[in-house]
Design a protein around this nucleic acid. Structure first.
Length: 552
RNA sequence: GGGCCCGUGGCCUAGUCUGGAUAAGGCACCGUCCUUCUAAGUCGGUGAUCGUGGGUUCGAAUCCCACCGGGCCCGCCA
């Protein structure tokens, strides 16, 4: 089927046939409500010394016979084009009826790796880190929807200083306590305080690192064990949010299987030494690969990881906190310039989430965990749904509250531009109205409710559409465009904002276009519109982690 | 000190890539609409010199320069 951009291209070609100097960027999607597409005629008026009216007359002669344009009108220096609503609606429903989904045009066989979360297994995941997971998962599902073969990846740091410190802390402070995330976190925080008081404690950590790296089986087992416990709780949090990681890769595996050594060999001609520690020069930075005691550093392990990903994927995407920007730049430099590995590599960075009281640190203990946020959102949702739906049984209320809570949390964090710093506020995070997931879900539930009640009808789509129908159809027609924009920019929030716009447009339709009580012909086509609407909302919701409910 | 990101009504955001029509939403506040398909909704109202100052342009929230404010980075941490 033809997408919005295809029509844009057709119109552009038509104009170029008469006025070859038309600038591509002057024909855009119209957001002002004057048309569907608009041509800014200023430069053509100037270069041809004619009025916009004359341009429009010529363009009409060229384009109107094509049949897909309903009208071409001049307003000021703009020439506005309206596409035929009937044509767009027929295209959408043909696609839906034929393939079961709209759009069904994207297909890209490339294998894509999306690495996200990858948070150190030193404690529960907090609302800052969960931003990584939420962006990453939406991105993965978005690319998947676009047709890519996507695998999500988690790189588990079980061989760095933080984890060694966690282990040393556990041994020192909690050796005989049960192995739980809570006890481990406490020991980690105690160890942090201990090293602040007594720098000698750091030597413990150094010793652990050396033994771990040299393959001391007892320490290896213990650390794996500890990391697995914490990873288990991280995973259960992710699971609540509907996030699944396909591949877990342990950093230490690259040490054990010799890949880190291979990295050093492959880089040998670029490697320099300083006091026994090895580094490569990247721009004006020395990027250290090993410590002077021979133990590996994150940089070399991450190079090994990216080499591994390059062997298995065509496109590598990493979602990282903004503090990793330099690291990422140097990784890219080493891969491309020193190892001469060419692969499509993109990094998506997000800014930090802070609390009103300041920044969060796991070691400092001032964090809001993602579990806490989900729990409180669930309580909030439950009290709302209980008040609104006293007719529903308790277990159904719980289900609804859960779906609302999880969706609200994901949307609240996922709709924001990743570059923006975020100050977390409970009142905003727990809001279930306005620009929120429940706002979208509620509209979906209303549409679903009408579809349940309205009689099945399979009449032909008529050619006349009322304004409220037409606006919704045209917004729906932009769904593939929104998907594309989100994919090209690696910006799931673009889709989130589209979904809000679509919902507002639907609400307008809902309040002005009765369906069930409408005469046959009108009802038929409105049922078609509702089917398309629910399909699109569900589709987009799945990508963003919003769970649509048939009733709420 | 150097580099990257952010700055849009009282608060939170969209729009910035690719310059164009009265700057689009939400929260809060004031008012409206449940005997009509679910009021987690609708409609209307108050409220913005788009951080500041220059520049480019017929036209700047958007591009360029400088400055101010906030975040992140500049480890043999990750």
């Amino acid at each position: 089927m033809l997408l919005f951009n295809d029509y844009r291209k057709m119109i552009l070609d038509g104009i170029a046939a008469i006025y070859s100097d038309v600038r591509e960027t002057d024909l855009t999607l119209d957001r002002s409500g004057h048309g569907d597409l608009t041509l800014r005629a200023f430069s053509l008026m100037k270069s041809h010394s004619v009025e916009a009216g004359k341009l429009a007359e010529d363009i009409k002669k060229e384009l109107l016979p094509g049949g897909y344009i309903e009208s071409i009108e001049v307003l000021g220096g703009y020439i506005n084009f309206r596409l035929s609503t009937a044509m767009l609606m027929k295209a959408i429903s043909a696609e839906l009826d034929g393939t079961g989904r709209y759009p069904d045009v994207f297909q890209d066989p490339e294998r894509v790796s999306v690495e996200h979360t990858s948070t150190n297994p030193t404690g529960p995941i907090h609302i800052g880190r969960i931003r990584n997971s939420i962006i990453g998962d939406a991105l993965a599902k978005l690319l998947q929807r676009y047709g890519y073969r996507v695998t999500t990846q988690y790189f588990i740091n079980d061989s760095g200083r933080q984890v060694a410190s966690l282990y040393a802390g556990y041994r020192r402070f909690a050796g005989n306590k049960p192995l739980t995330t809570e006890n481990l976190l406490k020991a980690y925080q105690e160890m942090h305080q201990e090293t602040e008081r007594n720098p000698d404690a750091e030597k413990d950590v150094d010793q652990v690192l050396r033994e771990y790296e040299s393959g001391n089986p007892q320490i290896m087992d213990s650390i794996r064990n500890i990391c697995s416990v914490i990873l288990g709780s991280i995973n259960s949090t992710l699971e609540k949010l509907g996030i699944r990681i396909d591949d877990y890769t342990w950093e230490s595996d690259f040490i054990r299987n010799g890949d880190v050594k291979k990295v050093l060999e492959q880089l040998s001609e670029h490697i320099r030494e300083e006091d026994g520690a090895l580094y490569v020069q990247s721009g004006d930075r020395k990027m250290f690969l090993t410590r002077n005691d021979g133990t590996s550093l994150y940089f070399s392990r991450d190079i090994a990881y990216h080499l591994y990903k390059m062997e298995n994927f065509d496109w590598i995407i990493d979602v990282l906190g903004e503090n990793h920007k330099e690291h990422a730049r140097h990784i890219k430099y080493v891969m491309k310039n020193l190892l001469e590995k060419e692969a499509r590599m993109d990094f998506v960075f997000y800014s930090y989430v802070s609390l009103e009281t300041g920044k969060m640190t796991t070691r400092g203990g001032n964090i809001v965990t993602a579990d806490e946020l989900i729990d409180r959102a669930r309580e909030e949702a439950l009290s709302v749904v209980k008040a609104k739906r006293p007719d529903l049984p308790e277990d159904r209320l719980q289900e609804i509250a859960n779906a609302v809570a999880v969706s609200a949390v994901r949307f609240h964090i996922g709709k924001l531009n990743a570059n923006k710093q975020m100050v977390f506020k409970w009142s905003e995070a727990l809001s279930l109205e306005g620009d929120s997931a429940p706002f979208i879900m509620y509209s979906y539930a209303r549409a679903a409710s009408i579809l349940r009640k309205a009689q099945e009808s399979r009449g032909d789509l008529s050619s006349h559409y009322d304004e409220c129908e037409s606006r919704l159809i045209k917004k729906m027609y932009l769904y593939p465009y929104a998907l594309q924009e989100a994919v090209f920019g690696l910006k799931p929030e673009v889709l989130a904002n589209y979904l809000l716009e679509l919902t507002r447009t639907f609400n307008d339709f809902y309040s002005t276009c009765p369906v069930i009580s409408a005469p046959d012909e009108e009802r038929n086509r409105r049922i078609y519109i509702l089917r398309a609407y629910t399909a699109i909302v569900k589709d987009a919701g799945t990508i963003l982690g919003i769970r649509m409910l048939e009733e709420m």
